[in-house]
Amino acid sequence: MEQGFSGTVAKDRLKYLVLSDRVSCTGETLDMIKQDVVKVISDYIDIDKYNLSLTLEQEKTESRSFAYINIRIPVK
C-alpha cells in the first residue's frame, strides 16, 4: 500500500503518467529496454543486473521540461 497523504500520492502517480504519455513510453517498454541494455553491456562487462536501475525522469528548465532515461548499471 502506498504511504502518505493521498494528495502527494496522486501527484507522484500523475507525474509518472504524464511523463510516459508525453514520450509514449509505458513501464512495459522500459522493462524491455532494460533487458536489452543488460544483454548488450553483459557482452563486454560483468554487471550486477539485479541492481540495475532504468527510469524515465524529467528535468525542468526555465522555458520547458524534457524527459530523459536515467540508467545506473553497477559493475561487478
Partner: peptide, 19 residues
C-alpha cells in the same frame, strides 16, 4: 479543506505538471 489536509492536489501541483 481537502487541499489543506493534502488529500487533494493543489493548484500549484497541477500547475507544476501542466506548465
Amino acid at each position: 479543506d481537502m487541499v489543506a489536509r493534502n488529500e487533494m492536489m493543489s493548484l500549484e501541483d497541477v500547475e507544476e505538471i501542466l506548465a
